[in-house]
Nucleic acid binder design. Structure first.
Lengths: 147, 147
DNA sequence: TATTGTTATACTCTATAACTATA
DNA sequence: TATAGTTATAGAGTATAACAATA
């Protein structure tokens, strides 16, 4: 006996495998929602990161998104061309700039974020709230280690 | 009081947010391990999918990886050029082919998979085994809904 | 006619190396 | 000299439309 699943329940996946599979599922939700809103998943992720705080520098953004800076330059270029974000020159340090959401980008960010959250919550609709909470809390602990 | 986290514990993330954050973490583990082994994350994922079973058709593979078929053609082309997979013509249906791991591809797949699993398990090292099991089982249930 | 897979094409994403401008 | 960001370049990933070959 190596699993806590009852007879008749799905064959338990193993911790790492479950995380990997869940990660793929989340990726696909992200991809589906992005496609419906006519942005790429990468651009959607950029918008979501920009939702917190009012303007993020390119260096911070590249760390947050785990992208090399030239990759980020291109991503921001394309998002800017679509009118989703804008670069604002920093007066204090004239090398730097902050990237901000435009009103259009902000609206899109809210819609995409809301849709993703609602699809993931829907997935857990049949789950006892207690289990849902426990998963969220346990994952939160794991995530805190890698900050 | 809207969270079960104790005082001093990390601020609980919310179910959907926790899944999204965990997904990003898994993506980065995947990216790091792939890079160390000198393959792209997409190629690593292809190898992992091919580990189960001996040869998968392009149509099945495109469904498993959620890729349009022309995208898959390119991915398999590049992996084949690197000697990681090979296309084997299907004698029964001469339109079709099965994609198989080469010995080199199989060795790489095992290493990448093992490394990813071990890093994710390591992340949970401080977690009571009971919690780890509960998360795995709960996620398994969620995943089973979307098969 | 339907299905399997590829080709043609156009973008997007990403990294490395070299660069500009400011600190 | 170090830091913020960009440009140049090359390759990988992806999708849509059109196609070839076989069923």
């Amino acid at each position: 006996m190596e699993s806590a699943t009852d007879a008749g329940a799905p064959p338990g996946l193993g911790f790492a495998a479950a995380l990997v599979r869940m990660s793929h599922l989340v990726q696909h939700v992200f991809a589906d929602v992005s496609r419906e809103r006519d942005v790429t998943p990468q651009q959607a992720q950029l918008l979501c990161v920009l939702t917190s705080g009012d303007g993020v520098g390119m260096t911070d953004l590249s760390r947050l998104l785990h992208l090399e800076k030239p990759s980020l330059t291109g991503l921001v270029d394309r998002a800017e061309r679509r009118g989703l974000v804008r670069r604002v020159r920093d007066d204090a340090d004239r090398r730097a700039c902050r990237v901000e959401l435009t009103p259009e980008g902000e609206e899109l960010a809210v819609r995409v974020h809301g849709e993703i959250v609602s699809r993931l919550e829907a997935l857990a609709a049949d789950l006892p709230g207690e289990d849902r909470l426990r998963v969220a809390d346990t994952l939160t602990i794991l995530l805190a280690q890698t900050r």
